[in-house]
C-alpha cells in the first residue's frame, strides 16, 4: 500500500503493459492473415490425411467419381436409373407439406396442453399420451408401422396411398409431438406478470392466449422450430425405406445398378445445399435474440 506510489514518483520505470510481439501479431490485419493461414493449413492437413489412408483411391473412385456423380444426378432412363436431382424434389415437397401441417397441429396440441379448461380434460390427457408416445418411438419404427400397417388394415382409401404419403404421415405424427413440446415451452416461458396484467384488464382466457401469450411465445420459439425443420428435411430421407423415389432411394438404385456410391455423395450435397443456409440463418437469429436480451438487461 505504501510502496506503489513511491516507486513511480522515485523514477523507477513504469510496469510494462505491452503484449509480447508474437501476440501483438494476432490483432488487426495480423489476425486476418493468421486465420487464413491456419484455415488453409487445416484443410491441407485433412485432405492429405485422407489421401494417405490405405483405401483412399478406392473411396475416391466409389464415392467421389465425378462422372458417376453427374450421371446419378441426371439419371439415365435407358438403364432405369432415376435422377437423384429430380428425386430430391420429392424430399422438398414432402418436408414443406409436412412442416406446414406440423406447425399447425403442434400449436393446436400445445394450446390444448396448457389450457386449463375443464371441458378439454380428456383431450388434454390424450394429447399428453400422444406426445409421450411419439417422442419416445424412433422415427424409423413409426415409418415401418405406418407404411406397412396402414395398407394391411384395408380401410378404404387410407390403405391405398403411395409410399411417399405414408412417409409424410409418419413424419407428421412424429414431428408434431416434438413441435408441440417446443411450442409448449414457449407458451409457458411467458412471465406470469403478463398473464396477470392481461387478466386484470378483463381479457378472457382465450383473448389472453391469443393477444398476449401466443405472440410473445412464437418469438422465442422460432429458432428451436427452425432446428426441428432442419431435422425434418433430413428425415425425409428415411422415407426411402418404404420405397418412395426420393433422393436417397434414387442414389440406392444407382449404387446397386452401377456399383458406385457417388450418387449418395450427390444426395448428401443436395441436402447440405438446403440445410446449411437455414442452419446459418437460425444461428444468426439466435445470436441476435441473445444480444437483444443482453441489451435489455443492461
Amino acid at each position: 500500500m505504501t510502496t506503489t506510489h513511491d516507486e513511480h514518483s522515485s523514477g523507477v520505470a513504469p510496469p510494462n503493459l505491452l503484449a509480447p510481439g508474437y501476440r501483438r501479431f494476432f490483432t488487426g490485419r495480423g489476425a486476418v492473415i493468421a486465420s487464413s493461414l491456419s484455415s488453409v493449413a487445416v484443410v491441407v492437413a485433412l485432405v492429405s490425411l485422407f489421401y494417405i489412408t490405405p483405401g483412399s483411391s478406392e473411396v475416391r473412385f466409389f464415392f467421389f467419381h465425378l462422372a458417376d456423380m453427374g450421371r446419378a444426378f441426371l439419371g439415365d432412363p435407358a438403364k432405369g436409373l432415376s435422377s437423384v436431382g429430380l428425386a430430391f424434389l420429392t424430399n422438398i415437397w414432402m418436408c414443406l407439406l409436412c412442416e406446414i401441417i406440423v406447425l399447425v397441429l403442434g400449436l393446436t396440441f400445445a394450446w390444448v396442453r396448457v389450457s386449463r379448461s375443464a371441458v378439454l380434460l380428456p383431450v388434454r390427457v390424450l394429447v399428453t399420451v400422444y406426445t409421450d408416445l411419439f417422442r419416445g418411438i424412433p422415427i424409423i419404427l413409426v415409418i415401418y408401422i405406418v407404411g406397412f400397417g396402414l395398407p394391411a388394415l384395408n380401410i378404404g382409401f387410407l390403405s391405398h396411398q403411395s409410399p411417399a404419403v405414408y412417409g409424410c404421415i409418419s413424419l407428421i405424427v412424429t414431428y408434431t409431438a416434438y413441435v408441440a413440446e417446443v411450442y409448449r415451452a414457449g407458451l409457458t416461458s411467458v412471465p406470469n406478470g403478463q398473464i396477470l396484467a392481461a387478466r386484470s384488464l378483463g381479457l378472457t382466457q382465450q383473448a389472453t392466449m391469443q393477444r398476449i401469450i401466443l405472440p410473445q411465445a412464437v418469438r422465442t420459439v422460432v429458432p428451436p422450430l427452425l432446428n426441428d425443420f432442419i431435422s425434418l428435411q433430413k428425415d425425409t430421407a428415411l422415407v426411402s425405406t418404404l420405397g418412395a423415389i426420393e433422393a436417397t432411394h434414387a442414389a440406392q438404385i444407382y449404387a446397386s445398378t452401377e456399383f458406385n456410391f457417388s450418387g449418395y455423395t450427390i444426395a448428401a450435397l443436395l441436402f447440405l445445399i438446403l440445410t446449411v443456409p437455414l442452419t446459418r440463418f437460425t444461428d444468426q437469429l439466435m445470436s441476435r435474440d441473445r444480444n437483444k436480451r443482453l441489451a435489455q438487461q443492461s
Binding site: 403478463q194 396477470l196 396484467a197 387478466r199 378483463g202 378472457t204
Partner: peptide, 18 residues
C-alpha cells in the same frame, strides 16, 4: 371475474407492460 376486472384498473409493481 372478467366483468369484475373490467370495473377495476390494476397497476403492478413491475409494470407488466406487454
Amino acid at each position: 371475474p372478467d366483468l369484475v376486472r373490467r370495473q377495476i384498473g390494476t397497476v403492478f409493481q413491475s409494470f407488466n407492460l406487454f
